[in-house]
Design a protein around this nucleic acid. Structure first.
Lengths: 69, 69
DNA sequence: GCATAATGCAAAGTTAACTTTGCATATTGG
DNA sequence: CCAATATGCAAAGTTAACTTTGCATTATGC
């Protein structure tokens, strides 16, 4: 799943550590989500959206649908 | 986390099994999410939103913020 | 009243999210 | 140049999401 966290962080000049603290997870979680190693839980997605003052849909992008065969 | 899945399903007259099939998870996952036993992953939340033609924010409601002490 | 569909839950297993620690390598600023 | 800050990843552990199976109960329809 793609996301715009890095850009939104850059706009605000927040480090990964600052964002992690704000949303209440470890820095490694932010790195892994930001770099697409895994997807956040829905509650973490809400927390990130709240931190940036955005909607989830404005930050995270659905994966392309699977080919049907 | 609260959600409006049961209402949205009722409006469309979909069973839990039908919704489960549409979004590609087991029926038990739908029951557990619908009844608040656990939260969906972000990708499942997107799939549910797509099934209903809604946004995530229109289906799922944030938990109230934790008291600060 | 009876069959069928719908819902709920429990138990046990797998997978994925998330944590902690630690280390390596940039990048930035004085 | 040096120190501090920022980023990335790896390994090993915990927790939570999700699966499968199975069974019990509650509608719904003929």
């Amino acid at each position: 799943m793609k996301n715009r966290i890095r850009v939104l962080r850059a706009e605000r000049r927040w480090s990964q550590a600052e964002l992690a603290a704000q949303v209440g997870v470890s820095r490694n979680s932010i790195i892994s989500i930001e770099n697409g190693h895994f997807d956040p839980s829905l509650s973490l997605a809400f927390a990130i959206a709240d931190a940036f003052g955005c909607k989830i849909e404005d930050i995270f992008e659905r994966d392309p649908p699977k080919p049907k065969a």
